[in-house]
């Protein structure tokens, strides 16, 4: 199948990439197939499950509903971009500590949604966490532990600041 390719530049996890992408390929496909960043997961392909959530110029989006070609010049953060070296991001640590991870397939997307939520609202209530993560499905349904993990991260960050 001959497909015209479009040149784009993407800053992914702090590093610039020059890529040739097909018009119909989603940001999700390009991250996974061309950049081999497979931490971002594919499930519903209609923006309903949130497994493909990444940060696009600092905002959480479902990367299955975005064409790679339309985000030329943008900055992307994926799950692989969290933490520093061997040091996990506090939210990742908290997910482990609270047993919020079961099969793990939805977790990268949920953590990215959680990062965005905490950035916008560093001290969310229980309900605000529910609202903020409502776009991410977890069929193992560790929702209670996930909420605890996010709340506890916020609490610890608050303590560190005060």
């Amino acid at each position: 199948m001959s497909t015209q390719k479009y040149p784009i530049k993407l800053e992914v996890n702090g590093e610039w990439h020059t890529l040739q992408v097909a018009a119909q390929h989603s940001l999700l496909q390009v991250l996974r197939d061309q950049l081999n960043l497979t931490g971002t997961k594919e499930c519903c392909d209609e923006g309903e499950c949130g497994a493909c959530t990444v940060l696009l110029n600092g905002r959480s989006v479902t990367s299955c509903l975005i064409l790679a070609v339309e985000v030329d010049g943008s900055s992307i953060t994926t799950i692989e971009g969290l933490g520093q070296g061997d040091q996990l991001d506090p939210l990742q640590e908290s997910f482990l500590e609270h047993g919020a991870v079961q099969c793990g397939f939805c977790i990268p997307g949920i953590i990215m949604s959680g990062k965005y939520l905490l950035k916008k609202n560093p001290k969310p209530t229980y309900e605000e966490v529910q609202e903020g993560l409502a776009g991410n499905l977890c069929r193992c349904a560790g929702y209670g532990q996930i909420i605890e993990a996010v709340l506890s991260t916020a609490e610890k960050a608050g303590e560190a600041q005060s």
Binding site: T78, E80, L82, V101, G104
Partner: peptide, 9 residues
């Protein structure tokens, strides 16, 4: 195996 699940690895 939890660590790989929170890092996407």
């Amino acid at each position: 195996g939890g660590r790989d699940r929170v890092t996407g690895a």
